[in-house]
Design a protein around this nucleic acid. Sequence first.
RNA 1: GAGCCGUUAGCUCAGUCGGCAGAGCACCGGACUUUUAAUCCGGGUGUCGUGGGUUCGACCCCCACACGGCUCACCA
Length: 504
Amino acid sequence: MSSNNDNQPHSLPEEEILKQRMDKLSRLREEEGYDPFIVQKWDKQHDLRYVMENFAHLEEDSGDESAEIVTAGRVMTIRKHGKAMFVTLADEYEQLQLYFQFNAMGEENYNFVKKWVDTGDIIGIKGHPFRTRRGELTLFVKECKLLSKAMRPLPEKWHGLKDVEIRYRQRYVDTIANPDVRDVFRKRTKIIQTFRKVLDDHGSLEVETPILSVLAGGANARPFETYHNALGLEMYMRIATELYLKRLIVGMFGRVYEIGKNFRNEGIDLMHNPEFTAMEVYWAYANYEDMMDLVEEILVACADAVGERKVNYQGIELDFNPPFRRATMVDLVREYSDFDFDQIETDEEARKIAREAGLELKGHESRFLILTEMFEEFVEDKLIQPTFVLGYPTEISPLSKRDPENPDFTNRFECFINGCEIANAFSELNDPMDQRERFEDQLKKRELGDEEAHAFDEDFINALEYGLPPTGGLGMGIDRIVMFLTNSRSIRDVILFPAMKPKA
RNA sequence: GAGCCGUUAGCUCAGUCGGCAGAGCACCGGACUUUUAAUCCGGGUGUCGUGGGUUCGACCCCCACACGGCUCACCA
């Protein structure tokens, strides 16, 4: 109480609960000579899914005493009835009711469970399945061993755990309380496995390239900075795997891919986490059109792997059935804004139109940059169904091969779903002289204050000078694809431990 | 980085005009041999996010800060 003025530190209620459970543990050790934290192993022979699936046929008020089930899990709820008890046991995939009976399991074991087992505890069980009068498949327990003890209480059994702050910070509590969350992450794994399977089946070699390097290239983004003590070196966390993977194509690997984390020092919102998982793949002798086919193949395979090709995403139906729509940026801008960039010849003209359209300009924008901004302003968020956007200006595509028909544009596409970019691909620029000019152009942008302009990578040009075959390359954001295929509103719902500020 | 909203028991949430801080579940003690949000009897476990201010008196009003959420900005 606040009137308590002694110098003893006030014991918080949470500490009370811990102390209470600690006292109980001490009494367990003293009175029973049993320490649940010393148990090494339990020969779990059946999971609860096995029991659910194999004894579904049992009729009410009957059991299969010949079936010896040895299982284990976490105690979720306990209903005590004196000389009988019902417990809801949960394991990774299922929940199953347990029935403890004084007569059946013997006084000693029964009283031990009744006295010492709490919700949250981990127990090992031997018994046989039966179905209760009320129709619930249940395990009739012959033997129960306390395998580990919970010192903290479980979240409330009816409302579960909703507080997103606790859910993200203490994901282990979230996945105890909300089994559906476990399922989202199983699907995430399934999707990544599907990526690997499709890419492997196409003869691509999975490789690993550096996360730490002295130069973070391959994308427009601000990197995280770090420091190597022994080398006395400023280093960066990678923002893309692109330049290393293309070096490998130069080095005569025909098809390579990497799935891993990229790190970008930017804001956090529903679609962005500072570290995110990307897949990049490069195929020698292929072009960006092959990459479009590959995107379709991967997405369809992922959709099939975790459900249907038509998925409900936050009330919108997304249809992953190929072929996806293909349209150029110029066409889409014309479609959604009535501005026709095929008819615009000069930068001045483009700026005039942009101002009429309500865009804020600095005054030096090229017509290509304005096209891009008009696309972002008027088109992007309207591309709900999977759509390939082609015809990206060369100016904003410093690593893409030019379109031979129109060198101001590149053989590049991005794929959008629900207004959100999930893939970026192009025929890779392999002309080292052109690449040098593109990097120099980026350097100018950087000098003009664009902190996200590409870094100049001399060694990458050196690699190109050895000869890069015509190559198709593709990058895909895996977190976002997982979001769409698991109906998750926030990227944090598909990342086990999303970035959070320290609480205290 | 900006704006808006939120923060009350382990969990889910009420709360008042500024006048002793509430419920359900969980938890603790007891009863109960087919319950399932078990039931019955008894127990409230709290620095009302943190720090200031106003006031006789603050969970409530004011200011600052922290963390979270949403909307922007930046981006994939």
